[in-house]
């Protein structure tokens, strides 16, 4: 009896999660997959085939956008890690008490305004008539107005900025749990600062690094607003292509195929990343 009750409680508690997974993740993807397999052969006439996927592989523009999105996202993730690691180390190891909380909250501040407003903020700074351009002209460093929007650097800046928190939080958590005496023991045994970083700090922080990278990579890959607004019409971001197919072209079949390819791509890159860092997803998630 008690056993049955416990089982019932277990399933009831699990139900919201299961419903959420099923209705919001599994069902739409199943639907999308079915749609992506339909080939339009006439008015309201469809056949099951991989034709939509073939379109992707035969059209260099789609291909290139796809590769470019992956490459830019990986770069953004690496940049976020390089900038975020020192910040996280500083917060976790070199400050304590009030300062620590304050710094941590400061990482959160950008998220108090919506992504749209944040991105417009960057546009105000970077555009031809924007703040930076004006300051440079005022200082006499440049002759005329400079356009800093609508290029890859602008996209990268936006992506790194948006992702920073998601890198810093897991890093601070893992670095916090690193016993200071391990670092001191390293020094005591004659290690240089770099050797300690390489042999003690990074191995300890690995689960945080991996989970931070996974989240940031997923966010960048799936980001729509930042690349479009900061990169302009020709930003060539894969989510932009998907949006075009669904909304502009009403070609749901091709859009679905693109969506599925994006899912496959992100899974593949995360898998490769985990293999390269010799971490397992379970271990990573359990430790952060």
């Amino acid at each position: 009896m008690a056993n049955d009750r416990a089982k019932l409680t277990f399933w009831l508690l699990l139900a919201p999660l299961m419903i959420w997974l099923l209705t919001l993740i599994v069902l739409p993807h199943l639907g999308m997959f079915l749609v992506s397999l339909r080939e339009k052969v006439g008015v309201r006439e469809y056949e099951t085939s991989f034709a939509n996927y073939a379109v992707f592989f035969n059209e260099p523009l789609y291909w290139n956008t796809f590769a470019r999105t992956a490459y830019m996202s990986v770069t953004a993730t690496a940049l976020t890690l390089f900038i975020g690691f020192p910040i996280a180390y500083y917060i976790a190891k070199l400050t304590r008490g009030r300062t620590k909380t304050t710094l941590f909250l400061m990482c959160l501040i950008p998220f108090w305004v919506s992504e749209l407003v944040r991105t417009f903020g960057w546009m105000i700074l970077l555009r031809e008539t924007g703040v930076i351009s004006n300051v440079l002209q005022y200082l006499g460093l440049v002759g005329g107005p400079v356009e800093m929007l609508y290029n890859d650097a602008a996209i990268m800046t936006g992506l790194v900025y948006t992702s920073m928190l998601f890198m810093v939080v897991p890093l601070v958590t893992t670095l916090d749990s690193l016993d200071d005496s391990l670092i001191e023991a390293g020094y005591d045994l004659g290690a240089s600062g770099f050797a300690i970083l390489r042999e003690i700090v990074i191995p300890h922080a690995m689960p945080g690094i991996v989970s931070g990278c996974i989240v940031v990579f997923m966010l960048s890959l799936g980001n729509y607003l930042t690349p479009i607004l900061l990169g302009g019409k020709d930003s060539l971001w894969f989510t932009g292509l998907i949006y075009n197919q669904f909304i502009t072209r009403f070609n749901w079949e091709l859009g679905s195929a693109f969506g599925f390819l994006l899912l496959g791509l992100s899974s593949l890159i995360v898998f490769v990343g985990l293999k390269l860092s010799r971490q397992s997803l379970g271990k990573t998630m359990a430790q952060t």
Binding site: E184, D188, I200
Partner: peptide, 21 residues
């Protein structure tokens, strides 16, 4: 002389063995 150059070694209160090695 910084600690990593001093000819002294220390056994820490909680030993501080490196768990990652």
């Amino acid at each position: 002389v910084p600690p990593n150059k001093r000819p002294v070694s220390m056994v820490f209160q909680h030993l501080a063995l490196f768990p990652m090695m």
